[in-house]
Write a protein that binds this DNA or RNA. Structure first.
Length: 804
DNA sequence: AGCACGCCGACT
DNA sequence: GTCGGCGTGCTC
């Protein structure tokens, strides 16, 4: 008898191991590792994933329950991915099921339904409202009508008999289109047409169409193109001449889009030089990491494209990761244009069903290339030839929920498994990556010149303190106003960039300084114009906008810094004739709105594009000759050791938007701290100088890439409890880690309370700590599951990006 | 996590 | 004497 090791869909510490189940004989060929199954678990039925199988002797056989049924015909996870899930759960300290689940499209997550089945007759009168439509009803309905206790009582008294059943459902079904096809022999069709009465013209017409068609015809096509109604089809179906048929289709998010085929462009000398070692690695099938450091507009994408071309020639597959925010239609166009139908696209803009379809194309080997955001790194390819991570420095490659993985680390594991190159591309590499390239861990490849030798835009840094001193209190410097005016006259386009953070809109009393805070969290609440209410971003608490100050009853209370909206108003005041497109959460919320706004701007329907982070990337329009950064330093002062790096990267990215084509570009960066090196050096676009300067700071303050980090978060409803557990954890680490490691804390988190839970943290900095994972596991188990610590929550983030 | 089981106080 | 509150322990 075969036995399957199954990881079940229960995210809990005590359940985080495999459970053994017998494989029923009839499924023995189907149930192999990587198959999803439905298994009995206690009284219920749940989804699980088979991770291993083995043969077992009789003695233990009777103790095991059997698998109910498989949910797949072929494995949804390869042996490689199953093993990768193990590594992930080990390294990021997440549950096995979480690591497995992150590799599958959301549509495959099970949904559970609990139902009540009445097994005895007749139905007692008090249950009639419940069992109106038969003897099976949902548990929710039984609860709603408050009949569950009565059911239990009656069953105990043996007056009735009922059962609770548990169902496992797939969240998403395959999309089908109803088709019609002949139900009789093709040769008999003429015969049938003759038999039909003369007035059945439409029916005859339909049969004629079907006669000349080898395959079935979709009903929508029949009604639209041939004007044949469903009634016509039905009457023929009733006669048994035609039949209905469900044909599975892919949802196609690019249905109405034509992709212009592109041919490989001739490479510049620099590109040529960069691609040679990559192609060598592709050819030799050796695992090697490359850092492709190329200034904005230097043609990194063409290097990717031609590398992929070679990979495809060898019959291998490619994964391309792109940050969510720059997965724009332009980006998709470039890959679809070169590789056509061989490309699947995975990004958050797709519906669950669309993602599922794209995933199935990969799974069925119908595509060879995946372009996608973070989670596309888990694409179930089995013959990978290259992994490319574009904009490698982007923090969106780190997932902030469990499993807290970094796509770059996963890429390296997969690259090593498949023995293929991993290419990390960026104009502003992360310090970690550049340092590794310096050390020779990565092979450094450089593209130092823009395509067509276009100059980098000239950047001017404007000191806003000076502006203030000379009496300009607006958010636009004289210089920026002047240049905007100039572009309007020349009919050229401008992009205005607002660093969103620090600009969130909050309500403050002008008299006493009262700021409206969330009652559950230690944070100020944000004002939402759309719903005209105050919201907390962390716990979903909502409140009305106050009209008078709750502290001092002043009516001089108003909202501050609405970011883009406020800037838009100001532009309207300065340039009444300007046409502005605003891009922020409010205007791009709906699906496709993002693309619509961008293409409107591309068509020249506006003079100024105003937006947040989301416009920093990918934007590549010839008519943009001016970029303005309204406030460069808003994120410089966040409690984050990467603040300087992020500022430099963002400013460099934004500057790169200007003058990418024939017309030269200009950039204006407004700041209150022009002397800060991350701002100063972004002005001269000097990455190397920034790298050197920032490395000194990192070394001095013992941060990556000189030290690794691990952050432990502790939260509890009571401050004292959180603090004391944090204290215990810290002293445990101090006792057990090497003396070269630095343990900071415990301290209250920068956001000291979320959802009425007090938060403490402890930060470990280390160079070498081989036993760290072991200790962290112990901590999570001991402090999380100790009954005396009831209600404590301990979470670990290995190599964190967010320290709040 | 969910669910059952079981032991206590508050009712008919 | 029964109902249902939640604390405890288990799920192959």
């Amino acid at each position: 008898m075969h036995v399957a090791k199954v990881i079940v869909d229960v995210p809990a510490g005590q359940i985080d191991h495999s459970f053994d189940y017998l494989i029923p004989q009839e499924w023995e060929d189907i149930i192999v590792p990587g198959i999803r199954v439905i298994v009995p678990f206690g009284p219920r039925k749940i989804q699980g994933i088979v991770v291993d199988t083995y043969m077992k002797t009789e003695e233990t056989e009777f103790k095991l329950k059997a698998i109910d049924e498989p949910m797949d015909v072929t494995p949804v996870l390869t042996p490689e991915l199953l093993q990768l899930a193990n590594q992930l759960s080990e390294e990021t300290l997440c549950f096995h099921i979480a690591a497995l689940q992150v590799m599958l499209p959301a549509a495959m997550k099970a949904k559970y339904k609990k139902k009540v089945v009445l097994k005895s007759e007749p139905i007692p009168p008090e249950f009639l409202p419940l069992f109106q439509k038969g003897n099976i009803v949902s548990w929710e309905k039984a609860m709603e009508l408050n009949l569950v206790p009565t059911l239990q009582r009656k069953a105990r008294a043996k007056e009735i008999d009922f059962e609770i059943i548990y169902e496992v459902k797939e969240k998403n079904r395959k999309k089908v289109i109803k088709h019609v096809c002949l139900n009789i022999d093709r040769k008999m069709v003429d015969n049938e047409i003759d038999k039909l009465p003369p007035q059945a013209g439409k029916q005859k017409e339909l049969l004629e169409i079907l006669k000349n068609q080898q395959e079935s015809i979709p009903i929508p096509e029949l009604t639209k193109d041939y004007g044949i109604s469903t009634a016509t089809i039905r009457s023929l179906a009733d006669k048994g001449i035609v039949k209905h048929l469900d044909v599975e289709v892919y949802r196609n998010p690019f249905e109405h889009k034509e992709f212009k085929r592109t041919e490989p462009l001739p490479l510049t000398a620099e590109q040529q030089k960069a691609i040679i070692p990559i192609l060598k690695s592709v050819e030799e099938q050796s695992y090697e990491s490359f850092l492709l450091y190329g200034v904005t507009g230097s043609g990194k994408t063409e290097v990717y494209l031609q590398t992929i071309q070679e990979v495809l020639k060898k019959g291998q597959e490619a994964i391309v990761l792109v940050p969510e925010i720059s997965l724009t239609p332009q980006m998709v166009d470039r890959f679809k244009g070169r590789f056509g139908d061989q490309v699947a696209v995975l990004h958050s803009g797709l519906s669950i069903g669309e993602k599922y379809d794209e995933w199935r194309k990969i799974h069925r080997k119908e595509v060879k290339v995946v372009v996608g955001a973070r989670s596309a790194i888990f694409a179930p390819f089995e013959n990978l030839g290259v992994i490319i991570i574009d904009e490698e420095h982007e923090s969106s490659y780190k997932q902030e929920e469990n499993p807290k993985y970094h796509a770059r680390d996963v890429a390296k594991l997969r690259g090593a498994y498949h023995q293929c190159p991993v290419i990390l591309g960026s104009a502003t590499p992360s310090l970690e990556s550049f340092a590794r390239a310096q050390k020779g861990v990565y092979t450094l490849l450089e593209l130092s010149r823009r395509m067509n030798d276009r100059d980098l835009p000239s950047v001017e840094i404007v000191d806003m303190r000076e502006e203030l001193r000379s009496g300009n209190r607006s958010m636009f410097s004289t210089k920026l106003v002047e240049l905007l005016q100039n572009r309007m006259e020349k009919k050229e386009q401008s992009v205005l960039f607002l660093n969103k953070r620090g600009y969130s809109s909050f309500v403050m009393c002008r008299d006493c300084g009262y700021v409206m805070n969330c009652p559950n969290c230690d944070l100020s609440m944000t004002y939402h114009r759309a719903s005209s209410e105050m919201k907390c971003h962390y716990c979903d608490y909502r409140a009305l906008v106050p009209t008078t100050c709750p502290e001092c009853t002043s009516t001089y209370i108003r909202y501050f810094g609405t970011g883009t909206q406020k800037v838009e108003e100001e532009i309207a005041r300065l340039f009444p004739e300007a046409r502005v497109i605003r891009m922020d959460v409010d205007t791009t919320g709906r699906k496709g709105a993002h693309e619509k706004l961008l293409s409107a701007f591309e068509r020249g329907e506006a003079d100024i594009l105003l937006g947040t982070q989301m416009i920093a990337k990918g934007l590549d329009f010839p008519n943009i000759t001016l970029v303005g950064v309204l406030s460069a330093d808003t994120m410089l002062h966040l409690p984050d050791f990467r603040a300087s790096e992020k500022t430099f990267q963002l400013l460099t990215q934004v500057s790169g938007r200007a003058g990418r084509h024939e017309k030269p570009g200009e950039v204006v960066i407004q700041t209150y701290t022009p002397e800060h090196y991350s701002i100063e050096l972004s002005g001269s676009q000097d990455y190397l100088a920034f790298y050197q300067k920032e490395m000194i700071t990192r070394k001095q303050f013992q941060y990556p890439p000189f030290y690794y980090l691990t952050l432990i978060n502790i939260s509890h409803e009571e401050v004292m409890k959180a603090a004391s557990i944090a204290e215990n954890i810290t002293s445990y680490l101090e006792k057990n880690l090497s003396s070269s490691s630095i343990i900071l804390g415990p301290v209250a988190s920068p956001i000291a309370r979320i959802n009425n839970r007090y938060r403490y943290q402890c930060l470990v900095k280390y160079k070498r700590e081989p036993e760290l994972t072991k200790h962290l596991k112990k901590i999570v188990h001991q402090f999380q599951e100790d009954k005396r610590n009831n209600g404590v929550y301990v979470s670990v983030d290995v190599q964190p990006y967010v320290l709040m």
